[in-house]
Nucleic acid binder design. Structure first.
Length: 374
DNA sequence: AACACGTGGCG
DNA sequence: TCGCCAAGTGT
């Protein structure tokens, strides 16, 4: 299957790299060979667009310039810098791995993919990426861009996500990666996948390796690769209550093993009766007591926030609740009463952050109104 | 092997 | 509005 490319591998590599040298975007992580910076960028880029990553990458490196800085940080500080980027286990893993490297590897990065893969959050792709970009280790890579590119070059008919397809893709990658300058070569593959060999309507007229491409030769660009099957989203309703007491609001840290683990949120729970667009306030108060042990009065509807997450579409009914009695039960995990001016100090879920902004705006409005009588 | 894990941009 | 897509990994 790879014969088309392998037969004239040297020409293929030359054409690809020549194209890359003319068309490479100047991405921040391409300006360095520091394995630490490359590692951070690769973790951030997992299932995440370049556009989204750039500002996070800059902030992260400004705050934690070295592996030692990261290892010395609190996990909460790392999560705060990750806030909004998604897949938060990446942030927790990056922190764990940093401590591991500092404590057990003298703060030095392994150069081999096999050793890199032993670190939490680093799988076969990321290990190959770091090893090749930072050390020119001749490691193969397969990720979204190269998967599409290889599949088309090979004319891959199998599902590229199946075990069979994956095996063929990795074998292909192994065969084409050069012994020298693997870093630039791998970057070139990804850049071509990202810029030319795009998912829909690839511009084959601009492709430097078109003559090696089975899909282009046969007009199969639209059929290869086979699309990823996606489950239809499920609608769910949730309720969030900003429980208010003495100018502060109750925030709870989400426990390990759940979505948004380690991030903070207002009191929040699923609402079984999805038909109820505006749940009875009394019922909400009952649920808050069940959740927290606190007796509250639901005083005002705040907003309805729509948010998609994995395969769920969430409608979040947000309310303001005034504390009446009871103390929060800490058995379920960490919680704090926080003034709205301090919300930004904690890593919040995206919906939590939105709600936090609304509450802060609501307060500043009411204080400015009270300062301006009439 | 299949599913969980997040979010935002784009057509 | 909606589905697709994004430098995947862990379980």
């Amino acid at each position: 299957m790879t014969a088309g490319v392998v037969a004239s591998l040297t020409d293929f590599r030359r054409a690809l790299v020549a194209w890359y040298r003319r068309h490479a975007r100047p991405l921040p992580w391409r300006a360095t060979r520091d394995p630490y910076q490359i590692w951070i960028s690769e973790i951030m880029l997992q299932q995440t667009t370049v556009t989204a990553v750039v500002p996070y990458f800059q902030r992260f490196l400004a705050r934690f310039p070295t592996l030692q800085d990261l290892a010395a940080a609190q996990e909460q500080s790392v999560l705060r810098l990750w806030e909004g980027l998604g897949y938060y286990s990446r942030a927790r893993n990056i922190h764990k791995a940093a401590r591991l490297l500092v404590n057990e590897h003298r703060g030095e990065f392994p150069r081999e993919p096999g050793e890199l893969m032993a670190l939490p959050g680093i799988g076969r792709y990321t290990a190959g990426a770091i090893a090749s970009f930072a050390f020119d280790w001749p490691a193969p890579i397969v990720e979204a861009n190269t998967l599409r590119l290889y599949a088309r070059l090979m004319g891959l008919r199998d599902d590229p996500r199946s075990a069979r397809g994956q095996k063929q893709l990795w074998e292909f990658a192994e065969q084409i990666v050069p012994a020298r300058h693997a870093g630039e070569f791998n970057q070139a593959l990804m850049e071509l996948g990202a810029r030319v060999c795009v998912p829909s309507a690839p511009d084959c007229s601009k492709c430097p390796v078109r003559r090696w491409c089975v899909a282009a030769t046969n007009g199969w660009q639209a059929e290869i690769p086979l699309p990823k099957p996606r489950a239809a989203p499920t609608e769910i309703t949730e309720v969030a209550v900003a429980v208010h007491r003495d100018g502060k609001y109750l925030l709870r840290k989400r426990p390990e093993g759940v979505r948004w683990a380690g991030l903070w949120d207002f009191v929040r729970f699923g609402w079984r009766d999805a038909e109820t667009r505006s749940p009875a306030l009394h019922d909400v108060a009952v649920e808050v007591r069940r959740e927290t042990g606190l007796t509250v009065e639901i005083t005002a509807p705040l907003a309805e926030i729509r948010h998609s997450v994995t395969r769920f579409r969430i409608t979040l009914q947000c309310h303001l609740g005034e504390w009446l009695a009871g103390e929060h039960d800490h058995a379920q995990g960490e919680s704090r009463w926080v003034a709205s001016t301090q919300f930004a100090r904690l890593p919040l879920s995206v919906t939590g952050r939105k709600l936090a902004r609304m509450i802060a705006a609501r307060e500043s409005k009411s204080t400015s109104a009270s300062k301006r009588p009439g």
